[in-house]
Design a protein around this nucleic acid. Sequence first.
RNA 1: GGUCCGGUAGCUCAGCUGGAUAGAGCAACAGCCUUCUAAGCUGUAGGCCAUUGGUUCGAAUCCAAUCCGGAUCACCA
Length: 593
Amino acid sequence: MNLIDEIKRSACEAIAQVYDKQVTADEILINETKPEFEGDYTLVTFSLAKTLGKRPDEIAQDLGARMVQDNSLFTGFNVIKGFLNLSVNQEFFIDFLNSNWNEKQFGSFEPNGKKVMIEYSSPNTNKPLHFGHLRNIFLGYSIANIFKATGHEVIKANLINDRGIHICKSMVAWLHYANGTTPESTGIKGDHLVGDYYVKFNDIHKIQIEDLVSKGLPKEEAEKKTPILIEAQELLRKWEAGDAATMALWKKMNDWVYAGFRFTYNRMGIDFDMMYYESDTYLLGKKIIEKGLVNGVLFKKEDHSVWIDLTADGLDQKLLLRGDGTSVYMTQDIGTANLKYSDYKMDTSVYVIGDEQNYHMQVLKLIMQKLGEPGADGIYHLSYGMVELPSGKMKSREGTVVDADDMIDEMTAIAKKNTEELGKVDGFTDEELDTLFDTLGMGALKFYLLRVDPKKRMIFNPQESIDFHGFTGPFIQYTHARISSILRKANAGEVDLAIESTAVITSVEKDLLSLLEQYPATLLQAAHEYNPSVVCNYIYRIAKEFNSFLVEHSVLKAEETSVKAMRLKLCYLTRHILAHGLGLLGAKAPERM
RNA sequence: GGUCCGGUAGCUCAGCUGGAUAGAGCAACAGCCUUCUAAGCUGUAGGCCAUUGGUUCGAAUCCAAUCCGGAUCACCA
């Protein structure tokens, strides 16, 4: 049991003893005591005043006395208004350190029997990944790690949007303007090459719109009637009919893109357990719709289109099949959701998708529930805000995007520059240096994108490069490297860590231990909230507290052996948590930097 | 217009299941390397927590209204 829960339990017991009233642990509020007051944790008694029929300060006084008397966990208390500040026995922290300092499982929970699928990344294959995609990818990967750590069985899934009008646009433009060039012939990364022709399509499309408008067509109509667009639509029809040449081109260009994506995912250290392709799933869902018609959940209009009426739930009517029997987006999603569930029977199915699809996801879940689909209740939309530039939203059609590959290059270059300026890497091989730059660059990038609450949109200014100081990935990594350095130098073996430390701990040491103890509870919170920024904030506090500890106390030159042993254990445990926490964010923890 | 999300230091963000004098980082300023990595530490300065009203012993936090920003409400994906 963690410390805060133990304090709550103890408080409930004291309430039962003193007032003969039953109170649940949920009704007890425990905060960390503010630094300016004496004590470690504070029980706030105001909310108990009504149920106990006493003044808050009296309750605090009564409970404090009782808890200190009955439970050796507490060594003292003071009361300020309704705040009961409790001092925790430092033996608790010493015991905690002794039993966990070398515990590799600290921060990993036993399997809880729950299975969860996380779908993330889910790119279109008509353009390379940009900065906005990175937020999605890092979020999904991190949440998957956090769920694993908290005992879930996790399936990481990627649903690749490999078909549709968007890829046909790239195909048309390539056919007309590429002269048969390929990634091999140009040396351009496959996803970028295909993306270039997507941009080319839009350029031509725009020119043709102007042309049509000058011939007297209204703009709205012109947008739908440009020759190049009509050609793309024709290509889509051919694709759906299985035309051999079209399929071959489609496959060729998608393969270019996949090679490009694979390279980028590898570089980012991102992987998946299951790939779904929309070309395999886009026809799914119709059977489920038909079933829904039979049992009356859905209805048909005169033109044979199929709808669901969600007005009773405060939403609209939603189309599920067109009059000609073809699917819409929602139909596919219903089919894919059904397929995922029949593949894995997971308890929770997480979709990492931007907040512009909040409504869509709400409707999807509701429809699944009304259709009585198994797994419908487990659908969870992990919604995140868009990454914007100071000038506004990124638009790939207009080329105002920060490219993911460029961003990674830039971060690695900054890591290199910073490292060289500091000149601390004598003795590194070239290979080790490259690994380090990669570790730091990716660490900075991932931390930067994960440290903000997912649901908030964030603004990224490319002019201001991502920092390596303060609340950043490299700062955590730096702290990890410092600890590693100390532990390397300490391996003389003159201190036996196997014996239980009994040293007296100072204030900073206790504060650090107190924080370290909260790690498992913090992970549960992060999982519960689907929020990696909780982990970012936590490991940042740890790193900061450790650095403060380090300027006050020497580990290797500790005054006594018992103190040295205790501090070494503190180093081990802190290092473990920093590395583990960074790992949950998808970042690495360097031994030296 | 309906629905949803956001508005906290110059900038980027914590804090939001109500609790003590609202916290970090960056930027600014002042200190700290003959001692385990200064990518660090310490300090100063910086706030009508969008506005107004309500609930409460107590509100950045809950409720309502208003203002600002965004998303969405397609036989697009």
